[in-house]
Amino acid sequence: MAKVLVVTSGKGGVGKTTSTAALGAALATAGKNVVLIDFDVGLRNLDLVMGAERRVVYDLINVVQGDAKLAQALIRDKRVPTLSLLPASQTRDKDALSDDGVASIIAELKEKFDWVICDSPAGIERGATLAMRHADIAIVVTNPEVSSVRDSDRIIGLLDSKTVRAEKGERVEKHLLLTRFDAVRAGRGEMLNVGDVLEILSIPLLGIIPESSEVLRASNLGSPITLNNPASAPARAYFDAAKRLNGEALDVTIPSDRKGLFGKLFGRRAA
């Protein structure tokens, strides 16, 4: 049974697109059929992070409006054959996305793929609510920083009220992905630590992605971090998060790039 996953955060710049690309590639290399949908109409970037910006012909809105078939708009990744991308439109307005149109595209994708991953735009407007609307699972991407945590709290509220599942009285499974985490600074009390954020947001932890220069290096090259440098600390954290999404019960650790230093064991499990 296909699962619809939304990667959301409220605040911009916390790592939604980076995480969508990295987790999508990690799930696809594990043999799953994965499609990534960019919901950021007018400000699309998932194509660029995936290195597919020159292959975009048709987009999400063309499909919603019937100008192109879904198969024409899907871009298959050249590195991982089980990974596809449905880009957003760069020129159109987000109002061109209709609720019914999105619903039928997601229903069609669910028949062909194991994972349908929706990359949400920032904010709480139409684009963001449409991206989360059909989700079974939500990943709330949060930085250990006050404004990000506050916005995540708001998004959690929307996931509990504005999604199809919430309206049917069911629950959207919510997971916290803590990104740009610096264990040294958190240890010194200069940054909110993992326990603080978990206590405030009270949703289960999917993973902790350490702050790393490898993330920018990968996006410069148009390659998900999990493909560009699978051995790097953030890539290992994303691979673990992908395994947890697939139901493996792994302890959450903070991988480190420094040699001989193992990540701190937190002893927490993602639910």
Binding site: V149, R150, G189, E190, M191, L192, I200
Partner: peptide, 10 residues
């Protein structure tokens, strides 16, 4: 240490 202040404010 400023993190406890951040936590309390939040």
């Amino acid at each position: 240490t400023t993190a406890p202040v951040a936590r309390e404010r939040l």
